[in-house]
Design a protein around this nucleic acid. Structure first.
Length: 468
RNA sequence: GGCGCCAUAGCCAAGCGGUAAGGCAGAGGUCUGCAAAACCUUUAUCCCCGAUUCGAUUUCGGGUGGCGCCUCCA
């Protein structure tokens, strides 16, 4: 598989540190609010990466953190009159609801910053001992000038960074480019004991601490949004490589933004849509589809029109899969000779899918393979088919969907207590149609529709569906 | 100022040296009592100008127009 590496700015063959095993880390949410769909993009996309790597036979250790201590959490807690821990607890739960809704699998580990303070202190101490960090009045800063490699991820020369209008020219820092590893506690803030006094971790250190603890000092893949490249990931590399003395991450993968009216969706522009709000109106699945129909590094311009188009596209897939189930009920005993061609189409679509996904996770082309499969199936199912073919087709369809994390919410076709009544009506309508009493048959169809059951007449008999 | 990204049909979106995947919407048709679904057909000289090449949407140079990072941000 080839993967675009931000570090080298080119696609590279993904070669794991240990064959057949992948260690990957994704920066997770800061849990002070509901996630918006911009936050949902890396969650969806890198879940698919993880699934695909597993699909291709790798054992994947995937860590995604929760940032549960930070200025925003503290602010939120103060506003609501609750503790920081309560804020975190609440929004981790909400995150989990959204992640589940989006069909995203839990990571192997979901560590929290506050659970890893000891490891954080250990790393900061070591950086101090090695001269890469210095303490001032309870704060600890990283000395960027001492790190020769600083800037290699973002490819930004230090001097030119200085030329920009920087902020936070803290008098405490030796250099404007230095960043905080440990912050002295202010009164009333949550804090932990440390060699530098009461305090809490700075912005970037938690990710490195969790990677060290759960995955090791060198990992295969580190991913996140493009806005994390600088300074977050740049700083991670600096602190990690200066601490351990060896390479931190082999492949850096960054997803593009979700835009609104062509501008980055963000809290500060106040142009964001929470995942929850969109899901309540359209469901989670169209959001997921929207994320995957474009390449993960391309920007996506969110709009109602786009989400509705995604819904329609998804309907085609759902219908195809339902048709397979329906056809199975009337399936012939065994495969006919003419089905050999159809059977051969199936693995060809898998090849097509894999070729797409191998090329830097091209989910857009992967979805195209799925749609091509759907066309093959729809064409085949026009005639009665054997259970052998239908089951094989369904298995292939489900296989590809599972990698993409799509069609995970196929509705239950359960009529429950209505079953007898519905079946009686369907039988009555069949009788009416036989007698060419179309007025009655249409009345019955309308009645069933009011009950939430939609009928379709097919050559293989009547097919019913529950209205979503 | 520094460092980047993007520009493909009405809309979304792949492709990135051999005259354009897939989806949505539209049009026509097949099937059907009707409807629905499905299937078939149909809708693009790939922002502009140069250069390289037998050949460029795809490479290079120059424009134009969007956007991002350099500050917390996915």
């Amino acid at each position: 598989m080839k993967v675009y590496n931000t570090l080298t700015r080119q696609k590279e063959e993904l070669i794991p540190i240990k064959a057949g095993e992948i260690k990957m880390y994704a920066c997770g949410p800061t849990v002070y609010n509901f996630i918006h769909i911009g936050n949902a993009r890396p969650i969806c996309v890198f879940d698919v990466l993880r699934r695909y790597l597993e699909y291709r036979g790798n054992k994947v250790s995937f860590v995604q953190n929760f940032t549960d201590i930070d200025d925003k959490l503290i602010k939120k807690a103060a506003e609501e009159g609750i503790t920081v821990a309560e804020v975190a607890e609440r929004y981790i739960k909400e995150y989990e609801t959204d992640a589940k809704g989006l069909g995203v699998l839990p990571a192997t580990f979901h560590p929290r910053a506050t659970e890893n303070i000891a490891e954080i202190i250990r790393i900061v101490s070591e950086l101090c001992e090695k001269g890469f960090a210095y303490a001032v009045n309870g704060d600890v800063y990283f000395r960027t000038k001492k790190d020769e490699g600083y800037g290699k991820l973002s490819h930004m020369p230090l001097e030119d960074l200085d030329a920009g209008n920087r902020i936070d020219v803290s008098e405490q820092k030796e250099d404007a480019m230095d960043f905080v590893l440990w912050k002295a506690a202010k009164p009333g803030e949550p804090s932990w004991h440390s060699p530098w006094g009461e305090g809490r971790p700075g912005w970037h250190i938690e990710c490195t601490a969790m990677i060290y603890k759960y995955l090791g000092e060198t990992i295969d893949i580190h991913c996140g949004g493009q806005d994390l490249i600088f300074p977050h990931h740049e700083n991670e590399i600096a602190q990690a490589e200066c601490c351990s003395g060896h390479e931190y991450v082999h492949y850096w993968m960054h997803n593009g933004y979700i835009n609104v009216d062509n501008r980055k969706m963000s809290k500060s522009l106040n142009n964001f849509f929470t995942t929850r709000a969109v899901a309540e109106k359209y469901g989670y699945e169209p959001i997921k589809f929207m994320m995957l129909q474009a390449h993960y590094r391309s920007p996506i311009n969110y709009s109602i029109e786009v989400i509705e188009q995604c819904t329609a596209a998804l309907d085609r897939l759902h219908t195809c899969r339902d048709n397979l189930d329906f056809a199975l009920k009337a399936a012939a005993e065994s495969a006919t000779e003419s089905e050999a061609v159809l059977m051969a189409q199936l693995p060809a679509r898998r090849e097509q899918f894999i070729a797409a996904m191998d090329d830097d996770l091209n989910t857009a082309d992967g979805i195209a393979a799925l749609f091509d499969l759907a066309r093959d199936i729809n064409t085949a199912v026009v005639q009665p088919r054997s259970a052998e073919y239908l089951n094989a087709a369904a298995a292939m369809f489900d296989e590809l969907c599972a990698v993409l994390g799509l069609l995970y919410n196929r509705c239950e076709k359960n009529l429950g207590s209505l079953e007898d009544e519905v079946e009686a009506l369907i039988a009555k309508r069949a009788e009416a149609r036989k007698n060419k009493d179309y007025k009655l048959s249409d009345e019955i169809r309308d009645k069933l529709k009011d009950m939430g059951v939609v009928l379709e007449d097919t050559p293989q008999g009547v097919k019913w569906q529950l209205i979503k």
